[in-house]
């Protein structure tokens, strides 16, 4: 349904507002496919390009290079009414529920806006749509909540309003940008379950953007990990958790553990340094300056292509869906070839 092919999103840097001073390569050659009814998680640290990717899918940004294909439409070239039509098919859930709701509008007005904008002229029809969606996201009692302003609701309820607004136009694709990271632990799960239910019920495709690996497995089938504007690993979620291949993925998993008193007793092995500048990314593999497995003369020169990872247990290709962009994978393949030869 959604096909992103070799997407580049570069922002031009200007010197004193005039001269060209290079590009911020926020998204640099990202490709993936998403089918209806599938949830895909996009994991990465801040500045890895996941927000730019999301904004480009929502067509808040224009792609610099590459295409986004949505049901056969080239999203990058949409304009005017076509663009509005496309946007009505893509729901958007933001991170900060309070910021995502206009503070001077009532819930009624907030939920009515997308309908008014997208040509629902019949007030009664709008009202029934609002009530239906509110029931669905469990914003009840409806009559009591509609006249309220966002600040009168709890964080969880605010996020439900945001979800309701994203769902009210009956989209095919939902882009959820850290939908629970601003919420309290006790409500997070509730919101995630709600999203999961909506996704299953409406056969939605979902892109779930997060930095928190631990919520991913309850929500999505597939996951890709982004680093410095590129996808470094793509896998079914279970496979990624069991067999993280890219050293960056491994570091992420190492850093985000489950609560356990043992955690306090040992240090975590974290790669040194910080993500590179996207104006001047390192040559070769972008992770190589921080990678302890980096192969001199290879990792710092050639950019690795995504390749299927070697399954540790039976030496077979893991249903060919688990890919990682790392030279180590190639090394491993070579090693295995050497062994089998």
């Amino acid at each position: 349904m959604l096909k992103v092919d070799d997407l580049h999103v570069w922002y031009e840097l200007k010197r004193f507002g005039l001269g060209h001073a290079g590009y911020v390569r926020a998204v640099d050659g990202v490709s993936f496919e998403l089918n209806a009814g599938e949830a895909m998680a996009c994991v990465g640290e801040s500045g890895c390009g996941k927000s730019s990717l999301m904004k480009t899918i929502l067509r808040l940004n224009k792609p610099t290079k590459g295409t986004i294909d949505f049901k056969g439409i080239n999203v990058g070239e949409l304009d005017g009414l076509d663009l509005r039509d496309y946007r009505s098919k893509v729901g958007f859930i933001q991170q900060d529920p309070f910021g995502a709701l206009a503070p001077f509008m009532t819930i009624q007005q907030i939920l009515e806006e997308p309908l008014i904008i997208n040509g629902f002229t019949n007030a009664a029809e709008r009202q029934s749509k609002i009530e239906t969606i509110m029931e669905e996201v469990k914003l009840t009692p409806v009559e009591e909540i509609l006249p309220k302003f966002p600040h009168m609701l709890s964080g969880g309820q605010q996020q439900r309003v945001v979800i309701a607004r994203a769902m009210i136009l009956e989209p095919d694709l939902l882009v959820a940008d850290e939908p629970v990271s601003m919420l309290d632990a006790s409500v997070r799960v509730e919101i995630l379950k709600l999203l999961r239910n909506l996704q299953e019920k409406h056969n939605l495709a979902v892109i779930y953007i997060t930095h928190d690996l631990s919520t991913v497995r309850y929500f999505s089938e597939y996951i890709f990990v982004m680093y410095a504007g590129q996808i470094v690993e793509f896998a079914p979620i279970k496979s990624l958790l069991e067999n993280p291949t890219h050293p960056y993925t491994q570091a992420l998993l190492e850093a985000s553990g489950d609560p356990d008193a043992k955690n306090a007793l040992e240090y975590k092995e974290i790669p040194p340094g910080e993500p590179p500048s996207l104006v001047n990314p390192p040559s070769g593999c972008r992770f190589h300056p921080r990678c302890k497995f980096a192969i001199k003369g290879k990792c710092d020169v050639d950019m690795p292509k995504p390749m299927p990872v070697v399954d540790g247990s039976n030496m077979a290709i893991t249903g060919n869906k688990h890919v990682a962009a790392c030279w180590l994978v190639e090394e491993e393949w070579k090693e295995r070839a050497g062994l089998t030869n």
């Binding site: 799960v189 958790l241 489950d258």
Partner: peptide
């Protein structure tokens, strides 16, 4: 708390 490993389903 959502867990990375184990079978526990989180609840709210």
């Amino acid at each position: 708390v959502p867990r990375l490993y184990g079978e526990m389903q989180p609840d709210f």
